[in-house]
Simulated assay, not measured.
Amino acid sequence: MKEKPESNEPEAATEAQAAPAPEEAVAPEEASAEAGSETAKLLAELDKAQAQAKDYEDRYLRSMADLDNFRRRAAREKEESRLLANAVLIEELLPALDNFRLGLAAAGNHPEAAEVAKGFEVVAAQLRQVLNGHGLEVIEPAPGEDFDHNLHEAVSQSPSDEIADNKVLTLVRAGYQLNQRLLRPASVVVSSGPAEG
């Protein structure tokens, strides 16, 4: 067998393929400047995106706070409306309650009407119980209690040797409050202290 003579041509071709093609030479300073410029651009965009994200977060938090405040306010107004829904009706009933009280007090002075008065007292107790269930409270200061201008209305002053100055002497008319809201102050006579010599 004859051996083929070795040729250097394929090796030369392989070396030619392996050698990189000449590229445009870039100076290291220019490459560094371009990379720095690109980095600065990216950092500026990042800062802008972070500022925008912070702005969106602030808006979101404010919106959530506003919504929470609105929910609380709506719940409070709903509760107030529920508590005071019957205020007008109860205010119109107050004179009838006063007359009921006066009638029972007058009936107590007549022994012949004791049985009828007892029946009306039961009805009055039921009526008070129903109204108390709706939040109505009677304001009846006893003699000797401090005069409270928030709950009492002084109709007059009178001297008293037993009751100190600026204390309730006599209850003239009961007052009422509905769910801590004053409907009508109690009318009272206030002591002016012992009479002068």
Results as ranks from 00 to 15, higher is better:
Glu92Gly: 12
Tyr176Ala: 03
Ala186Pro: 15
Leu151Asp: 05
Gly133Val: 04
Ser81Glu: 13
Ala164Phe: 13
Asp98Ile: 12
Gln180Glu: 13
Ala74Val: 08
Val172Arg: 02
Glu80Gly: 04
Ser81His: 12
Ala186Val: 15
Glu162Trp: 03
Gly103Pro: 00
Ala85Leu: 08
Leu169Trp: 08
Leu83Cys: 04
His134Pro: 00
Gly119Asn: 08
Lys78Ala: 15
Ala114Asn: 00
Ala142Gly: 00
Leu104Met: 15
Ala114Phe: 00
Leu151Arg: 14
Ile163Phe: 06
Glu145Trp: 02
Gly144Asp: 05
Gln129Trp: 04
Gln126Met: 13
Leu171Asn: 09
Ala106Val: 07
Leu183Ala: 02
Leu61Glu: 12
Glu121Val: 07
Ser156Ala: 14
Ala114Gly: 00
Met64Ser: 07
Asp66Tyr: 09
Leu102Lys: 15
Leu102Tyr: 08
His149Val: 13
Leu183Lys: 07
Ala114Pro: 03
Leu183Thr: 01
Thr170Leu: 06
Glu92Ser: 13
Val130Cys: 03
Asp68His: 12
Phe100Met: 14
Asn179Arg: 08
Ile163Val: 15
Val130Glu: 01
Asn86Gln: 03
Asp165Lys: 13
Gly119Phe: 04
Gln129Glu: 12
Gly133Gln: 06
Ile163Leu: 09
Asp161Pro: 15
Gly103Leu: 10
Glu137Gln: 13
Ser81Leu: 14
Val123Gly: 05
Gly133Asp: 10
Asp146Tyr: 01
Asp98Ala: 10
Leu127Glu: 03
Glu91His: 01
Arg72His: 12
Asp165Val: 05
Val172Ser: 02
Gln129Met: 08
Ala164His: 10
Arg181Ile: 07
Tyr176Asp: 00
Gln157Asp: 08
Gly108Trp: 01
Ser81Val: 07
Val122Phe: 04
Gln180Met: 11
Asp148Ser: 07
Ala117Ser: 14
Gly103Phe: 02
Arg173His: 10
Pro159Lys: 09
Arg128Trp: 05
Gln180Asn: 12
Ile163Tyr: 09
Ala117Arg: 14
Asp146Val: 03
Ala113Arg: 02
Glu79Ile: 10
Asn99Glu: 12
Phe100Ile: 02
Gly175Asp: 02
Gln126Ala: 15
His134Tyr: 10
Glu121Ile: 05
Leu93Val: 03
Leu169His: 05
Pro111Gly: 01
Ala107Trp: 11
Phe147Gln: 04
Asp148Met: 11
Val130Asn: 04
Glu80His: 06
Arg184Gln: 11
Leu131Met: 14
Ala164Gln: 09
Gln180Cys: 09
Leu89Val: 06
Phe120Asn: 07
Ile163Asp: 06
Ala75Met: 13
Phe147Met: 07
Gln129Asn: 10
Val138Ile: 15
Arg181Gln: 09
Asp98Thr: 13
Val155Leu: 06
Ala75Asp: 11
Arg173Ala: 13
Glu80Ile: 06
Ala105Leu: 10
Ser81Cys: 12
Leu67Trp: 14
Arg101Gly: 05
Ile139Leu: 12
His152Arg: 15
Leu97Ser: 01
Asn99Lys: 11
Ser156Asp: 13
Glu121Arg: 04
Gly135Glu: 11
Gln180Phe: 11
Lys78Trp: 09
Ile139Phe: 03
Glu121Pro: 00
Ala113Pro: 03
